[in-house]
């Protein structure tokens, strides 16, 4: 028993992700000699830093049994608010603060409708994703705002330690924070409990509505922060900023072993799947694969990652049955008299 427990982790999702990650890294190493360049390593994270940030909070949302399709629109709205206010003469810092407030407000709206009105979060945040993007369109119309002060764009673009910009360190700090909160705090346990069985959690005295609203607000806040980073990295904002990011983000979280029905998934798994997706994309970019094809490869990976364990489960049940069936047929063939077959059945 002890022996089998020692190796039990090998069957876990994280181990699977780790093996995939190693495969991807080895493949990348063989594919391109520039893969290990410090600049390329920085690029892997730098070019998707906004998505990576939102992945952290999306893990909370999905483990809690909800979904937030509006994150990309909140990112766009936050970048738009920041740019529009800057264009109107506000200092960047004030615009940044307002953008964060707007993000929290969006999250609050999502949370109120989803938790207190009891409307499925899929619909609430679908409406949110259309609506918040619409507000961004009202603010910027078809203009593009850029010319941010150089200190702001250098926050997103220039490295502070080697080629790594400060946004990467913000991400690492938030990852550790998210890990501790989700795995080791009371709040994190609440998130799992509600995702596993909301009714049971409520009977145990957990205020599920409050937890859900908190998570949606945090989701809005992080998405707004990511939107501001996006503005800083690109140095230029349009109303369609970050459009379509929600799919990548949700894909990474689901690939990380979180169930869409809530209750399962870990921060480590999500972190590993983030590394897998970023390295996979980087490798494909190095070998000049088109962006849409990259997305479809990740889509395939998402389906396979759920399908293969399910198939193994089905096979585990089917194979013994198949063996009995075969042995029965063999017995039947061996027995010449029908009487003996009857006796086998009895």
């Amino acid at each position: 028993m002890q022996q089998s427990k020692r190796w039990a982790w090998l069957k876990s999702w994280e181990a699977l992700m780790f093996i995939i990650l190693c495969t991807v890294v080895v493949a990348n190493l063989r594919l391109s000699e520039h893969y290990l360049d410090l600049n390329n390593l920085a690029n892997i994270f730098h070019l998707s830093i906004e998505k990576s940030l939102v992945v952290l909070i999306m893990a909370f949302v999905i483990i809690n049994g909800e979904i937030d399709l509006s994150v990309a629109s909140v990112m766009g709205l936050s970048a738009t608010v920041l740019a529009e206010r800057y264009d109107a003469g506000w200092p960047i810092a004030a615009g940044f603060a307002l953008a964060l407030c707007v993000g929290v407000l969006c999250g609050l709206l999502n949370g109120l409708f989803a938790a207190y009105m009891g409307i499925p979060s899929l619909i609430v945040t679908l409406a949110g994703s259309i609506g918040y993007r619409g507000v961004a369109r009202i603010l910027l119309e078809d203009r593009s705002v850029g010319d941010f002060p150089s200190w702001f764009t250098s926050l997103g673009q220039d490295g502070i330690i080697g080629p790594f910009p400060i946004t990467i360190f913000v991400f690492i700090a938030l990852f550790i924070l998210g890990f501790v909160i989700l795995q080791y705090s009371v709040f994190g346990r609440y998130v799992y409990a509600i995702g596993n069985n909301r009714a049971a959690a409520e009977y145990a005295g957990i205020n599920a509505k409050q937890v859900k609203v908190t998570i949606f607000m945090a989701s809005g806040l992080i998405a707004a922060l990511a939107g501001a980073f996006y503005a800083a990295r690109l140095g230029n904002v349009r109303a369609n900023a970050a459009e379509g990011f929600e799919l990548d983000i949700i894909t990474i979280v689901l690939l990380g072993g979180a169930s869409i029905f809530g209750g399962t998934g870990t921060m480590i798994g999500v972190g590993l799947s983030l590394l897998v997706v970023l390295n996979l994309r980087n490798g494909m970019s190095l070998s000049n694969v088109d962006g849409n094809t990259q997305t479809s490869v990740i889509g395939l990976l998402l389906i396979l990652s759920v399908l293969v364990p399910n198939l193994i489960q089905i096979l585990q049940r089917l194979v013994p049955r198949l063996f009995t069936a075969i042995s029965r047929i063999l017995n039947k063939g061996g027995a010449t008299e029908p009487k003996s077959q009857v006796s086998v059945h009895q």
């Binding site: 894909t251 479809s296 889509g299 395939l300 998402l302």
Partner: peptide, 26 residues
């Protein structure tokens, strides 16, 4: 995939959405 692979529909169609679009591009 949904009915016999027992994968949640939202996961399957999120994936195939990207795959079919990729197929179109190819």
């Amino acid at each position: 995939l949904v009915a016999y692979g027992r994968i949640p529909a939202i996961v399957v169609t999120l994936g195939t959405m990207a795959i079919y679009r990729g197929a179109l591009v190819e």
